[in-house]
Design a protein around this nucleic acid. Structure first.
Length: 222
DNA sequence: AGGGTGATGGTCT
DNA sequence: GACCATCACCCTT
């Protein structure tokens, strides 16, 4: 066993218990964790440096208008209503995937959006999947970039992140300097400072660049 | 270093 | 049919 393994936890039962609570509490502690995906082309591992917490539906103790569960269960968000430790992957903007790890006890759905990380294994494969990336630190410096680098698509939604072909390793000592602020790309009150549910490792170069979304109209003529 | 914008389709009302 | 939990690229400073 490697020394890094001795400094952390990868036992699925232990990790699932850890994920079974409030994602806003889990978020600062999961930073530094390493998620691995073994594909036929090889493994890619990412050390998480930025996550966002999303809470349960309307009738929960903490209503979250920014969450996909706000309107209640649908076919898409079904994994969020299941047990913790499973993946919720969705397709957005007609071209990108974003990956979450489900948190909270079953019946009180919540999740952590994996927003950014450092590729610590399989850089070559990750770079093949992310041809536009010009620097190693940008391979997973955004939610769609991270999903792409790991090779995650909606085919992976509902799959167990703690069992083959996935694994999740948790460090025993959490990241020292964690910052928090409003979530990115969330419109309405869910994106305000009243919901400072984005957490990141301070001064880490792989954290995504915050760019406020500007409202735009789309040309539907034709 | 940072703003503007085209691409492109699932999901839900 | 409006809205996206976005990215890359092309501009201007």
């Amino acid at each position: 066993m490697s020394s890094s393994m001795e400094n952390g936890v990868s036992n699925p039962a232990e990790v699932r218990t850890f994920l079974g609570g409030d994602p806003r509490v889990i978020a600062p502690q999961i930073l530094g964790a390493v998620l691995t995906h073994h594909s036929e082309a090889g493994p890619v591992s990412v050390r998480l440096t930025e996550v966002e917490a999303y809470m349960g539906p309307r009738d929960s103790e903490h209503p979250d208008p920014g969450s996909h569960t706000f309107g209640g269960p649908t076919a898409r968000n079904a994994p969020m209503f299941g047990p913790p430790g499973f993946l919720y992957v969705y397709f957005t903007y007609g071209m990108h995937y974003c990956a979450n790890i489900v948190c909270g006890p079953e019946g009180a759905p919540s999740a952590l959006l994996l927003r950014a990380g450092e590729i610590v294994e399989g850089e070559g494969l990750a770079a093949l999947r992310r041809p536009a990336s010009k620097a190693l630190k940008d391979l997973a410096s955004g939610p769609a970039r991270l999903a792409s680098a790991l090779g995650l698509t909606t085919a992976d939604t509902g799959r167990d992140a703690l069992a083959a072909p996935f694994s999740l390793w948790l460090p025993k000592t959490p990241a020292a300097a964690v910052a928090s602020g409003p979530r990115v790309g969330v419109s309405g009150p869910g994106g305000s400072t009243e919901y400072p549910w984005r957490f990141w490792v301070e001064d880490d170069p792989t954290v995504s660049k915050y760019k406020a979304a500007k409202p735009r109209t789309r040309n539907t003529a034709g």
